[in-house]
């Protein structure tokens, strides 16, 4: 589980980290010193849950939450505050929970139970249903626009530096917040095939194939940019079977 903690006060930040790490030894914890830090960390990587202090200099927790919720499939939000006067506003923002500092460990455990339940439900069932039915995928461009891609418009999927991108005509590679393995399983039924350690290709877009070296090939795709995707030796047999080569 990826957890982000945003609080401007070091003791508060460290104390919550300590409690969470104790309850979830396997979780990866990241801390932010203020709202803007939190937002830029959220742009960098995926989090399952964000613990937000409400009283922070600059953007306060409620403003940060509003920003977070503008994103597609946002992380769950838990507010932590020293005094419960923002509870109504917090629930208006559909926060998962609202904690009053100092936080009791057994209270925090309840929050985590709720969180697990939501993650299971939302990620497991809803995300799958939606993508099966709609055959669409959210992707993010470098200028923070979100693009809804049809499977059939995707040329290839590429993993690079632990990030995953979709290649689509007319765009620079678009960031997709899924793993290559997830997408391989999900897109298989729609004619996508693994052709390289870091590539899936949309078979219906493959136009030409040329020999590269030592048994590997280059696939040239039917796109304006004539995108190329490597076909490594390991995947050649599967590719042949799939395309009747």
């Amino acid at each position: 589980m990826n957890i982000l903690i945003a609080d401007d006060e070091k003791p508060a930040r460290e104390e919550l980290s300590f409690l969470l790490q104790d309850l979830l030894p396997e979780a990866s914890l990241t801390t932010a010193k203020n709202g803007d830090d939190a937002l830029s960390l959220l742009r960098e990587s995926d989090f399952d849950v964000v613990f937000l202090d409400i009283e922070m200099p600059g953007k306060d927790g409620l403003q940060v939450a509003t920003k977070i919720l503008e994103r597609p499939s946002p992380p769950r939000i838990v507010f932590a505050t020293a005094y419960s006067e923002h509870a109504v506003e917090a629930f208006r923002l559909s926060a998962l929970d609202y904690l009053v500092k100092p936080v009791r460990q057994d209270r925090l455990e309840q929050t985590l139970d709720k969180l697990r339940e939501e993650i299971d439900q939302r990620d497991g069932v809803q995300k799958l249903l939606w993508s099966r039915k709609a055959q669409k995928l959210w992707a993010e461009s470098s200028d923070e626009r979100w693009v809804l891609l049809d499977y059939e418009d995707i040329l290839f999927i590429q993993a690079q530096d632990k990030k995953v991108y979709a290649g689509v005509d007319g765009y620079h590679p678009l960031r997709v917040r899924r793993t290559l393995k997830e997408l391989e399983d999900e897109l298989e039924a729609d004619g996508f095939l693994r052709v390289h350690k870091g590539f899936l290709v949309n078979l219906s877009k493959v136009k030409e194939m040329s020999a590269w070296f030592s048994g590997s090939y280059t696939l040239i795709l039917d796109s304006k940019a004539k995108s190329q995707v490597p076909l490594s030796r390991r995947y050649v047999t599967r590719f042949r079977e799939a395309t009747g080569f």
Binding site: A12, E15, A82, Y83, P102
Partner: peptide, 18 residues
């Protein structure tokens, strides 16, 4: 200010450990 009071308690809790 009640914020002060509870923040102070939270801060002290951290230092009890560290």
């Amino acid at each position: 200010n009640p914020h002060f009071l509870f923040n102070a308690l939270n801060t002290i809790r951290y230092f009890v450990r560290t």
